[in-house]
Amino acid sequence: MLQQSKIAIRMLLLFTLVCGVAYPSVVTGLAQGLFPRQAGGSLVRRHGHLVGSTLIGQRFRGPNWFHGRPSAVGYDAAASGPSNYGPTSPALRKELAANLAKVLRENPGVRPAQVPVDLVTSSGSGLDPDLSPGAALLQVPRVARANHLSAAAVRGLVLRQVRGRWLGIFGEPHVNVLRLNLALDGLRGR
């Protein structure tokens, strides 16, 4: 009993040093050296100022930006999470109806059948950086009008940002909203 306990404590301390100190230090050192952009959180700068991370969704309001998906945490990137509403929950129905009404109000002329499901449902992380291509294209007329740009130009912008399935099979086609809005910002500035 005593002998095994002594070994257990020595082993725990030794393995704690190996797995809790050496392992993360070596991994972090190599990661910073080999892949500094990803290791730093894929942050983006505009005119020298940090504006976010391409991987983390952020909230866009107003007609002149493309909007991302509804978020259960209000795009708080320090407190991620989903809505956790069950499929038959009355709260979910209310939420979905409100989200749809908002999309229809903000995008006049759009019919419900044109609204992709990602625009009315909350994501798993609350920080989903992406939209389905259809959800971005739906916003083109509004965004073009609000920015005094041609719909064709804005539409082209969206189509250039579409990323397909990985290897043509895995995942779903998507558009990164922050990248799209950065591109839009560039188009506006010209």
Binding site: S83, T121, E172
Partner: peptide
């Protein structure tokens, strides 16, 4: 898609 991410589907 409630609770799911677009990139995964």
């Amino acid at each position: 898609l409630e609770g799911k991410e677009v990139r995964f589907g």
